[in-house]
Simulated scan of single mutants.
Amino acid sequence: MNFNFLSPVSDSVLAHNELLSAQVLGRKLHIHSKQNGIPDLDGVSIAILGVLENRNDVNYIGEEFELNEIRKSFYALFPGSWNTIIADLGDINKGESVEDTYFALKETISVLVKKNIIPVILGGTQDLTYANYRAYDTLMPMVNLVNVDCKFDLGDSQKPIKNNSFVGKIILEEPYNLFNYATIGYQTYFNSQEEIDLMNKLYFEAYRLGQVSKDITIVEPVLRDANIVSVDLSSVKGAEVSLKQKYSPNGIDGKEICAIARYAGISNKVSSFGIYEYNPSKDDELTSMLVAQMIWYFVEGVNCRVKDDDFSNEDYYQKFITLVDEQELIFYKSLKTGRWWIEIPFLSEVNNKLKRHTLLPCMHQDYIDACNSNVPERWYKAFQKNCL
């Protein structure tokens, strides 16, 4: 495996690590260092990967940044009762061009996912999600992407890619691998009506900040169905982060963003998780500690994964059938975890993206709604997308 793209974790972080308690995470990680090189990845489940690229920021003025403070904060946390081995592979430095950085990230993610290692990407700008998505071109036919963000980031796909327009490129550039795109925590006043209309027209999902804050559990099914989760730190409310990180007085709070990270970890499908738009400042401890805790909760979630979506054995699930507007809706409930799914029917006359009956994660509330003759919105959007 060619990991030439990676530079080791800095000596200052490693020196800081040596002063910590023997029980902390930093003393248990497999760390890429100058002295020992890249660690052996046998048995590793999660790999932390920094990417020092921010040139496609719409406000880029040449500033550099590093991820040392995040690492110091994460290394100092104590692990849960975990059985996963975590590696810190260091950083991908800026390439000659942004495309070179994309290539390095794409190749690295592709190799890690093939080895069943989940990369946790710590990034500069969120357009790196495009490279993350492209890593799946050779891995799977259709990809579900969840973006935790106050904006949709659709942008104008005719223009060069930027950190506020990368999703347009993902949707419109071949190969077309995107099945579902969902945004968690969007704030209406940061998005044009045209973008909101386009999200509806494409049957993509969007959860407003108010919905998420009222009931965080509504985002669990969409995260359960995601392959890639990308978090923009500007979705976090200004009071929760340090000086240069502040973006908006309204946003997701610290507990909610950690709950989202844990849901992403628990999902059996999520195979890459990225945290982007990190802007260090002199009073950086708050943001770096929040990011460290997000990673901690993601790892905690991965350790709690339960294989509950195999419906071949009737002993492990219950099946419920309801009728809404002459449409038969079939629900499944896992007896292991209590999680729910709904079946999306296969339309043989349509050249659709699903080759069989597909199960869509949902909530118990969706079943209750269906019993009251209301079609669940997630089911409706997935069904319509199949007909496109």
Score class of each variant (00 low, 15 high):
46 I>Y: 03
67 L>F: 00
72 K>L: 04
52 L>F: 00
37 G>S: 05
89 L>S: 10
76 A>W: 00
80 G>S: 06
87 A>H: 07
111 V>A: 11
77 L>G: 01
100 D>R: 10
114 K>V: 10
24 V>K: 02
51 V>G: 00
46 I>G: 03
51 V>Y: 01
92 I>A: 02
41 L>F: 06
26 G>K: 02
31 I>D: 01
59 N>E: 13
48 I>F: 01
54 N>I: 06
44 V>C: 12
94 K>F: 07
29 L>H: 02
61 I>D: 09
113 V>C: 04
89 L>A: 10
48 I>H: 06
73 S>W: 01
57 D>L: 07
97 S>D: 08
105 L>N: 02
71 R>A: 01
64 E>G: 10
113 V>A: 03
114 K>S: 12
88 D>T: 09
37 G>T: 05
110 S>Y: 11
88 D>C: 08
57 D>K: 05
101 T>Q: 13
31 I>K: 00
20 L>R: 04
69 E>D: 09
48 I>G: 08
84 T>C: 03
96 E>K: 08
110 S>W: 09
96 E>M: 09
81 S>N: 07
85 I>C: 11
114 K>T: 10
116 N>K: 15
60 Y>R: 11
88 D>H: 06
58 V>E: 15
20 L>C: 08
106 K>M: 13
94 K>C: 13
41 L>Y: 08
112 L>M: 07
34 K>S: 14
72 K>P: 01
